[in-house]
């Protein structure tokens, strides 16, 4: 069980996390979704006692990480980009951590086997591929056989095999009754692994709900109409309660099925040249909800174009 309560973290003048509150429960995969820079890694680092909160609290099983008597037995973590000293072998890296956290040394061979690194145990980490480093990080997280796991962007840099392996592992860990908290900036990835989503943007909570609820709420369809007489049709559709926007060569209709739009056109005696249902993707909805990043990118694009114009290009 992870508890984040009114968490705020500032680095100098930059607010990375702004009044964030949520809980992560056992027995499910909870996705932590948000664009890069949304405060996901910071929240995880505070949960693990690496960074100090400016205010609020982030607790593991109701306790600050540093106050856990046997932290490795209660929570394991894979941090973004976190691996090991390049000069040390995978086995020595894990053995040191096992000794420090009071985990029996036989666990080292077990977790190396579990993540598929048994054959590379004696090799120095500096020669590992990105995928092998991620596996080593996951091995370190599993070392104490903990009841809670935090994975920060676990599929980053993995090939397809690795991605599938992480998805299966995450699911299996949750099915064993553990608390599993996985961050990602990809909605599509979260859709495949998460039971529940905590969505953040700009350090604030956007949503905290079961995945199915978010999918239902965020998936929207619209109907594109091509017609030479948009006026009467729009009026008719609005009367039926649909939302209508004018578009190039016709209308965009929200809140009405394509069939209903066709029938309405027929009854109003309006000519139709085209009628098409369009599904807005979940990814699209997510991008709009966490729009700060997208707006920034678009705004910058416009400014750059203006500057180029001023400079006489």
């Amino acid at each position: 069980m992870l508890t984040v309560r009114g968490l705020t973290k500032r680095y100098g003048g930059v607010t990375a996390v702004d009044g964030l509150s949520f809980e992560v429960r056992p027995g499910a995969v909870t996705g932590f979704l948000g664009p890069n820079g949304a405060g996901k890694s910071t929240t995880m680092r505070v949960l693990l006692g690496l960074d100090r909160p400016t205010s609020g609290a982030a607790l593991v099983n109701g306790v600050r990480y540093a106050d856990l008597p046997r932290p490795a037995r209660e929570v394991g973590a894979l941090l973004d980009g976190g691996a090991a000293h390049p000069g040390r072998s995978a086995r020595a890296h894990l053995l040191a951590l096992a000794r420090g956290s009071g985990v029996p040394r036989r666990r080292v061979a077990e977790v190396l086997e579990e993540v598929g690194l048994a054959g590379a145990a004696g090799r120095r980490v500096g020669g590992f591929s990105l995928g092998m480093r991620q596996r080593l990080g996951i091995a370190a997280a599993l070392l104490g056989d903990p009841g809670a796991l935090l994975f920060d962007e676990p599929v980053n840099g993995l090939d397809m095999d690795g991605v599938l392996w992480v998805r299966r592992l995450v699911r299996a860990l949750a099915d064993e009754g553990r608390t599993v908290f996985v961050s990602s900036h990809l909605m599509s990835e979260m859709q495949l692994v998460a039971d529940r989503l905590v969505v953040v943007a700009g350090g604030r909570l956007i949503a905290d709900a079961p995945l199915s609820e978010l999918v239902a709420a965020w998936t929207r369809s619209r109907v594109l109409v091509r017609t030479p007489d948009p006026g009467p049709l729009a009026e008719r559709l609005r009367r039926d309660g649909a939302e209508v926007e004018p578009a190039d060569g016709g209308l965009v209709v929200h809140g009405a099925a394509a069939e209903a739009v066709g029938d309405a056109a027929h009854e109003a005696g309006v000519r139709l040249h085209g009628l098409r249902r369009e599904e807005a993707s979940l990814e699209q909805a997510y991008l709009e909800l966490t729009g700060a990043g997208a707006e920034y990118a678009a705004g910058r694009g416009v400014r750059e174009e203006q500057r180029e114009e001023r400079e006489g290009k």
Partner: peptide
């Protein structure tokens, strides 16, 4: 200092948080 910048220092602090 050898582990700042490669994640090793965080790993050590997770094992020994004090």
């Amino acid at each position: 200092t050898g582990e700042y910048g490669n994640g090793g220092s965080a790993a050590a602090l997770l094992a020994v948080p004090r």
